[in-house]
């Protein structure tokens, strides 16, 4: 999923300051799962903003709505009426959701209420870890399904570097060395020979380095 984290309330108050009628628009898929932008977070944030404005004797009207996904048109349209009635939208979706709304409502300011952090998983309840960079050219088959591009601090394809000690990364003792994990797993799978050969430089053209990406599925274009 896309993992996100709500922005600090002070920053949110600052960016919504010019508006009198605000729609807080939640997103019911990824950011709901990571407790950043679902119905519950929309309601809590709305109360916090109302309180903060009241304390400063300022007025603001807040509407609340959460759609299933802000990155899909059919769900976005469910919010169209509400969007039209407000001065601005505070979207609690990931960066894709914020931009999807903005593309469809050219005259309405759309503001981000969360910071999109990464593509990851919920490792334990409340603990999320980054697992994928969306490089567009998956090499997990070689690395025992552990991504060195994402999980090695130096993106090494022929690691580990000299800073790996006791399974930890030199950057921070809280970071597991991806290469220790890769070697352990390939050893267990009997595939350590994957690493004896030189793994050539990555072709980054399929990543963001190649410019903004677009995927066209001719078979699905109506």
């Amino acid at each position: 999923m896309i993992v996100g984290e709500q922005k600090p309330i002070t920053e949110i108050i600052e960016i919504i300051a010019p508006y009198k009628q605000l729609l807080i628009l939640g997103c019911g898929t990824c950011v709901k799962t990571c407790f950043a932008g679902g119905e519950d977070e929309v309601a809590t944030l709305a109360s916090m903003i109302r309180l903060a404005f009241k304390k400063d004797s300022k007025e603001i009207k807040i509407a609340e709505q959460t759609v299933e996904r802000q990155c899909e048109n059919e769900f976005i349209q469910e919010a169209a009426q509400n969007i039209a009635k407000n001065d601005a939208i505070l979207s609690l979706a990931c960066g894709a959701g914020v931009q999807a709304i903005a593309k469809r409502f050219p005259k309405v300011p759309v503001l981000p209420g969360i910071n999109t952090t990464f593509i990851g998983i919920q490792e334990q309840h409340g603990i999320f870890t980054e697992e994928c960079q969306g490089c567009g050219n998956c090499g997990l088959a070689t690395f025992g399904a552990i991504c060195p591009i994402t999980r090695c601090s130096k993106k090494l394809l022929n690691g580990p570097c000299g800073g790996s000690q006791n399974g930890k990364c030199e950057v921070n003792a809280n970071i597991e060395c991806a290469w220790q994990l890769i070697i352990d797993r390939l050893t267990q799978l009997g595939q350590l020979s994957n690493l004896r050969t030189y793994i050539p430089p990555k072709n980054w053209r399929t990543s963001i380095s190649g410019g903004p990406r677009k995927l066209i599925r001719e078979d699905h274009i109506i």
Partner: peptide, 22 residues
């Protein structure tokens, strides 16, 4: 490969690591 930039005096820097030392 080089020491990670977070050790240095400008930890806000973007790192590159386009290729590795190998």
């Amino acid at each position: 490969s080089g020491d990670h930039q977070t050790f240095g005096s400008q930890p806000d820097a973007l790192n590159v690591f386009d290729i590795d030392s190998m």
